[in-house]
Design a protein around this nucleic acid. Sequence first.
DNA 1: AATAGCACTCTCTGTCCCGGAGTGCTAAAC
DNA 2: GTTTAGCACTCCGGGACAGAGAGTGCTATT
Lengths: 345, 345
Amino acid sequence: MHSDLNDRSKQILEAIIEDYILTAEPVGSRTITRRHPLALSPATVRNVMSDLEEMGYLTSPHTSAGRVPTDKAYRLYVDSLLAVRRVSRSEREEIRRRCSIDGRDIGSVLRDTSRILSSVSHYMGVVVAPRFTAAILRQIEFVKLSENRLLVILVSQTGSVQNKIIESDGKIAPADLERINNYLNGILQGLTIAQIKTRLIEEMQTEKIRYDQLMSQAISLSQKTMGDSDSEIFLEGQSNIMELPEFADIGRMKKIFRTFEEKNLLVRLLERCMDAEGFNIFIGAESSLSQMAGISVITSTYRSGRNSLGVLGVIGPTRMGYANVIPVVDYTAKLVSRLLDGDRH
Amino acid sequence: MHSDLNDRSKQILEAIIEDYILTAEPVGSRTITRRHPLALSPATVRNVMSDLEEMGYLTSPHTSAGRVPTDKAYRLYVDSLLAVRRVSRSEREEIRRRCSIDGRDIGSVLRDTSRILSSVSHYMGVVVAPRFTAAILRQIEFVKLSENRLLVILVSQTGSVQNKIIESDGKIAPADLERINNYLNGILQGLTIAQIKTRLIEEMQTEKIRYDQLMSQAISLSQKTMGDSDSEIFLEGQSNIMELPEFADIGRMKKIFRTFEEKNLLVRLLERCMDAEGFNIFIGAESSLSQMAGISVITSTYRSGRNSLGVLGVIGPTRMGYANVIPVVDYTAKLVSRLLDGDRH
DNA sequence: AATAGCACTCTCTGTCCCGGAGTGCTAAAC
DNA sequence: GTTTAGCACTCCGGGACAGAGAGTGCTATT
């Protein structure tokens, strides 16, 4: 679809994009000929640039400034121009070194992953924790906190833990609690949370339950705990993007921070990537969110075996170092997958 | 110690501070006489201001600007000038409405508390979660995740849950895990994590343990899990402070965000407040942290019965609406205390 | 088709100037 | 002796303006 460009135009466009990624300043015809060995005069380049502008790959902020790539240009760039680099040894080592699961909980592993992504890429790192509703239950456990308060702990197969405090009306004897725990583990283990919800409804209608007050209490308690909850999201390295010249404008920055404070917008955007096989790139307003103008997101899913657990990635300006960031995201996703999957080396 | 000021000077200083809090602009002698019913001429006020400057309560950014309160002035203000307002009905209602514990975990309750603090105060809200090492253990539970991976869950009396994944060398049969759980709960329940650490060392030296391989394994496993961990901290509403004119300078803002990204600095600062009975106020560089120049922190502890659990508060510019924020922080702290303490209405 | 030349456009920077707000001092008033 | 009015002075901020620099588009030439 983009093949309406001849080779030379592509080369020039690529040069412009790479220059702009480096400098963040509108690039002019002179600059291109100086910095790239194209064997063309500025005038020629100018003609090509003019064409590219007409086709929507470039814009100029004003008449006598250089030109700036549009989202469309970046899209072409990542789709067909870009030569993805392998992730460098030193990066690989830093990522490995800081990724470990022993003695920590899933949450902090993911948060750290986000930190790593941000510090390696110099943009923002983001990790969306696995949706708990898709998780397979390994264990459920009620713990009595006080007369009218219970704590329920849900453990998933991958080691995610979710806990909730619920207020119970009646008092429950420790022995009964034990029975409830056993009973629920018996019928719920191995199901996903989503399955559990329907299972609880079925269970409630069996004969056994109707006549056993305790069991019915067990069911109703656990129903309380199965409410949806937003996916957790770890967004780190926000100060990194303050370094970028394109966000030096204070108003611009405010808007971005406001956007990212509203986490669930981001969650929704990222969860759209869950189904994609490999990595996924949003460029600027492509995501049909006006707030994302000027911002690109590179994501990849991390998975356990066959099914995706969650999404991680890097958020930066559209003028992002794609060639470096893409492999980093990819590598990190694979590493996290392996980590969560039990690290069977 | 501050009584080296006569009444009139105090009144004028107060007027200046309140004006500055409102406008964020250096206040001049004219402005004061216009906006405050002091029955004094600008010239008189000027003389007083000159004195106040000499005493270190005011500075002027340059010769012909108005004057700006110093940290010392704010200190005097909050210590003796300020008439703390009661928290307004509408604020009280908003806080109550959004504070609930049923069906949630401690973490998200505290995170929300931080959000509430930020949205009510229009500054940043901050909540430090209870130190887990000070918590009393209610239950410890090992769950097997895979051949070489265990999940350990620690539940405190107040309902905080901490979990860690640990890699185990040997394989452990489910029945053995059960025994380990029972054994550990038997000897550790009711102790604080700190006490547990020493207890584990003692236990390791008893006869019984030396000869029971399983129990010794139990001990060594649980020692693995008792490593220190940083207190969690919830900092919300960062975009609020971007609205403030004093942080319109991009460099200034960067520094602040960098400071707060480094969470443990903040934790250390806030934990210093743990021992204080009521609320606590840091003004600017008082905290002996140069990064905190221009920033004030109002904190209060939340507690269960007699002992402090954690700290919460509001972070804003030194030019903060102390009169409104102090009661809000105070009220919120009390509410959270009650909430965590089992809400025995 | 590619290039050199040229006139034109637009931004950015520095300088100058002026008005406004505020101060400090001195002398007069209470 | 305190308070006030008057006045000269200082400093910032904004507007006007000119010149430099970078870049463009067009046209004529190779």
